[in-house]
Structures are given as structure tokens and as C-alpha cells.
Design a protein around this nucleic acid. Sequence first.
DNA 1: TTGTATATTCAACATATGTTGAATATATTG
DNA 2: CAATATATTCAACATATGTTGAATATACAA
Lengths: 216, 216
Amino acid sequence: MKEKSTSEKSERILDAAEELFARHGYDGVTMRQIAAKAEVDVALASYHFGKKVDLFHAVFNRRAELLSASRQEVLLASKEQASGGTQTLEQIIEAFLLPLKLAQESRDPGWRNYLAMVAYVMASPVWNEVLMPNVYDKRVTEFIDALKAALPHAKEEDIHWCYHYMSGALALTLAQTGRIDRLSGGKCKSSDFDAAYNRMIPFVAAGFRKVCGLDS
Amino acid sequence: MKEKSTSEKSERILDAAEELFARHGYDGVTMRQIAAKAEVDVALASYHFGKKVDLFHAVFNRRAELLSASRQEVLLASKEQASGGTQTLEQIIEAFLLPLKLAQESRDPGWRNYLAMVAYVMASPVWNEVLMPNVYDKRVTEFIDALKAALPHAKEEDIHWCYHYMSGALALTLAQTGRIDRLSGGKCKSSDFDAAYNRMIPFVAAGFRKVCGLDS
DNA sequence: TTGTATATTCAACATATGTTGAATATATTG
DNA sequence: CAATATATTCAACATATGTTGAATATACAA
């Protein structure tokens, strides 16, 4: 009698690694900690995924394509909805954020861990250039193109800097450090993604308009 | 004949640790790497600063008071300049960011490393609650009070969320990951703090106004 | 069934890690 | 100068680390 199927153990390893990498970063986690959390032998992680750095890549890439595809889909749907005319800034930003919000609110807690790990990667000078270009940067380019269309008179640098600010606001939200809970005396909660995203859209849109000029 | 004074070696250790912690995080750095970069014996770091975690605290705290004091000073001067009436949003945000910009542009490259390390701490769920409350959160509270005065009709949650977004935009700027360089095809540079801060002020101010309602 | 590929465990390795204590040098003070 | 405190080096420790190879178990195909 077997307890779990093969793929279950392999995914338990990914789940455990995901949770630990999200909180402690790559170097703050040992293979033994991962194995312990996944309740498997240490050697099994190496058997399935190779070196530690390969496991890190595997965890990062597991949900990357899924999320990126969902993003493209939503952005496309948003484009079509704005029949004929260009989308509003709010529509573009919402399309960019919606898949993340849905992932955060998923019943699978792994998605929250994954996005916290993405935030870690985004903020890390070391991992950023290694992991972000492969999957995510392509969709970011599409997103920026949509912004250019909505802000035809904007200088390209302005758009890039504004995207940079949005990216930072997003990363800190995904990271879930709990700081806003502390600073607000409990009035705001890191886990309240509805609150975070509902305000982020008008905040960012207004910033874009101010810096990049009125949209057409 | 002695090569360097005692305090110089001790500060070389702090400088080396600062640079390495900023880039690789706490767990990504070994005492031996720090010692090597500082060109001192490994044991010397322990002799001066105790355990590794204490060295981390020492690096973080070395410039914290200095920066925090500069921040308070600028915020106070900004308050007085707005004689009688309350400050504008832009003035408040500028006062918040100016000391950081000055530090970034300092001739001492240690300041850039330090601020990148602060960004790492801000984005880390583990270190955030350990290190941020001691020094920085007090000034943040003053800053938020100024915002409340400038946005008398705003709900407190809205202000906190907007501050959270600004905080994220700031953190990613301090982190200097180089991502904006890549995404913009070289049009924007992570090291161009003038560009980053000049746009961040109107961006954030517009976001606050949109989310928190018009200022008085 | 038997044979074979896959999955999992166990034990061990070489190396890297933070930290310490004793020894030595340098500075400071009387 | 001598005496004392501080700073620095050296060597070593116990432990933790990623990784591997052999042994064993399980799944699967013939």
C-alpha cells in the first residue's frame, strides 16, 4: 500500500520549497528544511530536480507560464471589450493586476507563496535578471505597448518610470511583509487583496496621467 | 608602522558587509566573504561585532539614525516654509524623499549600498518587523500625520494604502535591480536618481489625490 | 509470474559555516 | 621604561551544508 502517488511527493517538494523560498529567500533555505516540510527524504529533492538552484528554477517556472498566459488572455479580452477605441488606463492596469488578484485569492495557498516568491525575485538584484526575462518580461512589453497606445503623447522614459513605480507597489503588496498592518495599527491588512488592488488601480492610473500627460 | 587605524578596519568590515548584504541578503553572505572584501581576518568581525546577526544589525543601524534625523529636519523645514497654511502634498512627499535622494547621490558609495540593504529589509517578511520599527517607523508616523493634515477628508485606510504604494515604488528604486534598464532598452537607468525622484513625486501625489480625495 | 524502469531511502562524502580560545602584536597609560 | 588594555592573527572546533552512490522498494510492461 502506497501512501501518496509519485507526482504528489514531487509536488509536495515544490510546495514546501515555494513556501520557504518566499519567506526566507534562496540562501535562507536548506534542502533539509524543504524535505522536512514536504515530509520526504532529502535525497529525493535532488533526485527529482537536480541541484538546489535547479529546484529554485523549477519552483519559479511551475506557475510562471500559467500566470503569464492568464495575463495575456485578460489583456486581450480587455482590448476587445474596448471595441474600436483604445482602452482606458484603468482598463489596462486592471487587466495587468487582475490575474494576480485572482491568484492571491485562490483557494490554493501555494499561489500566495508563489507570488511572494516572485516579489522576492523582483526585489533581488541577483535573481531579477536571471528569472524575470524568461517569461514575464515578454508580457510586460505587451503591457507597455498598450500604455503607449493609451498615452500617445507620452515620452517613453516617463512610461517606463511609471511602470517601475507600479511594479514596486505591486511587489511590496505581493511580498506580504505585514508592515501596513503594523503602521496602520490594524486598520489595514496585508492579506486584504481586495483593498490593495481596488486602490492600486486609481492610484497608478492617476500617477500615469500626471507624469505622462493626459491620455487621448 | 601600522597600516590603518583601528576604527578604519572596523569600518571596512561594516562597509564590506553593507555591500554584500545589500546584494545577496543576510543568508547569502558569509563571514569569510565579508572579511575577504574588507581585507581582514575572519575572527576580527566577530571580535568587533559579535555574532553575524549582530553585525547585520550594526550595519543597518550605523546610518539609520543619521538618515532618520536628516529626514525629520527636512520635514520640519518644509513645515515651516509653508508658513501658516498646511504643506502641499508635493512638499510633503518631497521632504520624505529628499534625504534619500541626497544619500543616493552622495560621494560615499556606502550610502547606495546601505539604501539597497534597506530595500532588502523592507521587502523581507523576516527582517521587516525586526528592523523597521526601531528607527524608521517613528518618522513614518510623522510623515503620515502630515499627510492627514494635507488630506483632511481622507479615510485613514486610504492614506495607509497609498503610503504603502509609495513605499513599494521607493523600495524598488533603492534596490537598483537594473530591471528598468533592461525593459526600457537602456532609455532609463537604475542609477539615475534624479529621473527616478523627479517623476516619483508627481506620480505619488496624483495617486494620493485620486484615492484620498482632493486636498484642502 | 518475471524483468525492467522508476521512485525512494539510507549512509556517507567533502566542504563550508559561524564561532571560539589561545597566542601575538600593537597601542595606551603609569 | 614597564604594565596594561586593546586589537589582530592563527588554528581549530563542532556542526551544517549540498550532493552522491549504493541499496531497497514500488510501479509497470511483457
